[in-house]
Computed example of a mutant assay.
Amino acid sequence: MVVRATAQRLRDSRRRTADRRFGIHLLGSAAVAAVAAVPFGLLLVLIEGQWRPLRRLDVGAARRLHATALGHPAWTDTLRFLSDRVWDPTTLRTVVALLTGWLLYRRAWRLAAWSAVTAVAGGLIGLLVKMVVERARPSLVDPVAHAPGFSFPSGHAMTATTSFAILLLVLLPMVPRAVRPLCWCVAVVSVVGVGFTRVALGVHWFSDVVGGWLLGLAVAALTTWAFEAWRTETGRGPAPLKEGLEPELTDPEPELAPATPAAPDRPGQSVSD
């Protein structure tokens, strides 16, 4: 009886610790989503209200960067290559689709579902907001690039935000700890860089790019919150985000690893031995 009571206390203690960690993760994800969503809503109100300081910032950035693009053709070609090839939404979505397929191959069903839902939700929400806001793109004399559709939010910026969030949170468990800061730097530089290229090429206002970043961050935070809840409900504790969403991904079959069964009591043996 003593051993059984002690074991029960240990299980209760671990459960309380897991619950506290889960609560912290839920609050953290909700806070990130709120921090991203509130400024996005405010930004949208300012754009719809034609707030002059924001309008001056948008126009000033567009004109200065457009003048630089006209005066430096080689620089402009580099921006086009990065925007239309390396950080193009089609390229990033293809990478995420391949990653999702690999997760399905590994039988990491939940993580594959999270990856797909985050990518698809980000694309659909961005398209819906574009159709509702219907903001015109910059109209510049002698433009160096063209883009179809409406302007707000930037699809490139939003796709980069959600895609690199997916790549980081899925692949971090397989990356050595010493290399992880470099992965974060590459992701941040890419997300910021794609926004810069869109403004520098004159196809988006600065506020379009900021809106894409904020909305993409909100989508990634909300789906991550849902994944943490899902993970806990299926019997696994929440994982620190610095370890990725599913640290068990390094196991041969992360979704199929059975729990270690408790050893049955042997007949005639006292439980207090």
Rank of each mutant, 00 (worst) to 15 (best):
V129I: 12
M131S: 14
V132A: 07
V133W: 07
E134L: 14
E134P: 01
R135P: 02
R135H: 04
A136M: 15
R137Y: 08
P138A: 12
P138R: 01
P138Q: 03
S139E: 15
L140S: 15
V141L: 12
V141M: 10
V141D: 14
D142Q: 15
D142W: 12
P143S: 00
P143Q: 02
V144A: 05
A145R: 03
H146T: 12
A147C: 09
P148D: 15
G149H: 10
G149I: 09
F150T: 02
F150V: 11
P153R: 00
S154G: 11
S154Q: 03
G155E: 06
G155D: 07
H156E: 13
M158R: 14
T159L: 11
T159K: 04
A160W: 02
A160H: 02
T161I: 07
T161Q: 07
T161Y: 08
T161S: 09
T162D: 08
T162L: 07
S163Q: 09
S163N: 04
F164C: 00
F164P: 08
A165P: 01
L167E: 15
L167R: 06
L168D: 06
L169F: 05
L169W: 00
V170C: 05
V170P: 05
P173H: 08
P173Y: 08
V175K: 01
P176G: 11
R177Y: 13
R177D: 08
V179F: 10
P181E: 05
L182N: 04
C183G: 06
C185L: 12
V186G: 14
A187R: 07
V188L: 13
V189R: 07
S190W: 13
S190G: 14
V191A: 01
V191T: 01
V191D: 00
V192W: 12
V192I: 13
V192N: 00
G193P: 10
F196Y: 13
F196P: 01
R198I: 04
V199E: 03
V199L: 12
A200I: 06
G202D: 03
G202Q: 00
G202W: 02
V203L: 07
V203C: 04
V203T: 11
V203K: 03
S207K: 03
S207W: 04
V209Q: 05
V209R: 03
G211W: 02
G212Q: 06
G212A: 13
G212W: 00
L214P: 13
L215A: 07
G216D: 07
A220F: 13
A220E: 06
A220G: 15
